[in-house]
Amino acid sequence: MIASPVVILGARSDIGRALARGYAAKGAHVILAARGDIEADRRDLEVRSGGQPKAVAFDVTDGAPDAFFAGLGETPGTVVMVAGLLGDQDRSASDDAEAARVMATNYEGPARYLLAAARAMNGVEGGCIIGISSVAGERGRGSNYIYGSAKAGLTAFLSGLRNAQAKAGLHVMTVKPGFVATQMTAGMKLPPPLTAQPDEVAKAIIDAHEKRRDVIYVKARWRPVMAIIRAIPEGVFKKLSL
């Protein structure tokens, strides 16, 4: 069961758009939350679904999460946190403001918004919170450990929130998409067997949501890949170019 409304936080991203369409196609009432103008996406969803999707302004780093949920005018049934920022490792390592932005966008902001979501959703039947974390959070690598560490924080947060809310009946799901062909990764050379399309990610999330799974990889191949990466002894790992 999918509890409406479904609030997509970060609805302008490729995954956010695909999720909005996927949920609307399931008949859910969708609320798009994004920075900037998303009227075109809201209208698209309206024409596609025949429903009445809403669009609201949202910035994961603005620091007023309770006010955001109070302003929705309805109690969310499902909240999906898609907002995130890959950033550039070299820039983040040399520029404190950039590092702060990556950390705030991938950990602090999402965690605070989802805490507020859990407060707002207190007692909602069939409620579900979904966080998009990352395989990058499973082990810090030289090439993206600032992003990765923030995602590690988010993964731990989601695990804790799931544990804390289990008795109250609020389901929490962690998603590790692996590589996804999106605007965020445009121009990067991604290995095709491990790279998912946004539509594929959305479908995997919605399927897993209906089955109330706890933690998912979008492509099953990531499970053994990450098991190997986690198993490499630190003494060897630190010398690899990863």
Partner: peptide, 9 residues
Amino acid sequence: MGLDRLVSF
């Protein structure tokens, strides 16, 4: 390919 929205029907 990213511009795939419906405007009206």
